[in-house]
Design a protein around this nucleic acid. Structure first.
Length: 220
DNA sequence: GCCCAGGTGGGTA
DNA sequence: TACCCACATGGG
């Protein structure tokens, strides 16, 4: 399993190179983006982030005190906008009450404490928590998303119905716990998933994973 | 017009 | 645990 996972990484990195993730570098913007991107194309998230920025709401203080209906209007492109506005509010209230609104205070927690606290917030599930830990805090928590699951299934490493925790463990127990590596690997899964390994109309000719993919072998 | 996109929470059996 | 549903935009 170790060699399989590292081989896949090497193949993807050779094919696509560095991905420079997360798009955007400000920790607060990364967190807001991580919540808004749930079940939505990133392009829509970019529109919402740009609108929030113009309205000067990309900071914990201003966003916390902004009227809910204003936030709803600004994040409309990200679908489920009413639900997501509440999720943003939940996180901001948590940050205010638990860490006096200081993001640096939250992000300096140990990986396990940070994960536990994030998962206690309404609207932050495992994937969003791991994205925040990895991309906003820079700590090695592997992110499992739909692309990762689909690619691992295609390749033949998993059945596909495994719980999130099982897949996260698969990576964290088999490859070195290095934030830079986890960052790049997840970003490469997304890149490969978007470009080559979609749910429909797979493009299996000249696939970077062709020689290690069970699906590619049968699709010829 | 149809499908799908970087999920989560809540409910039921 | 496993499976259901609500949430409800925009691009290909």
């Amino acid at each position: 399993m170790l060699s399989d996972l590292l081989l896949i990484y090497k193949r993807l990195f050779s094919a696509y190179g560095e991905q420079h993730w997360w798009p955007g570098t400000d920790p607060f913007e990364i967190i807001i983006g991580a919540i808004l991107t749930q079940q939505v194309a990133w392009k829509n998230v970019e529109k919402a982030l740009a609108a929030l920025k113009v309205a000067d709401l990309l900071s914990p203080e201003t966003l916390l005190h902004a009227p809910l209906d204003e936030v709803v209007a600004l994040i409309r492109p990200t679908m489920y906008y009413n639900a997501k506005a509440k999720k943003l509010r939940s996180f901001l209230l948590f940050l205010q009450e638990r860490h006096h609104g200081a993001l640096s205070d939250l992000l300096s927690l140990s990986l396990s404490s940070l994960r536990e606290e994030l998962l206690s917030v309404h609207g932050i599930g495992e994937e969003t928590a791991d994205s925040i830990i990895l991309y906003a805090a820079g700590k090695p928590s592997f992110v499992i998303d739909a692309y990762t699951r689909r690619i691992l299934q295609r390749v033949g490493l998993i059945g596909g119905a495994e719980p999130y925790a099982a897949l996260r463990d698969l990576f964290m127990e088999n490859i070195p716990r290095d934030a830079k590596l986890y960052n790049e690997y997840h970003a490469l899964f997304v890149r490969h998933g978007k470009e080559r390994c979609r749910s429909r109309g797979p493009l299996c000719s000249d696939c970077p994973l062709g020689d290690v993919c069970a699906y590619a072998a049968t699709a010829k």
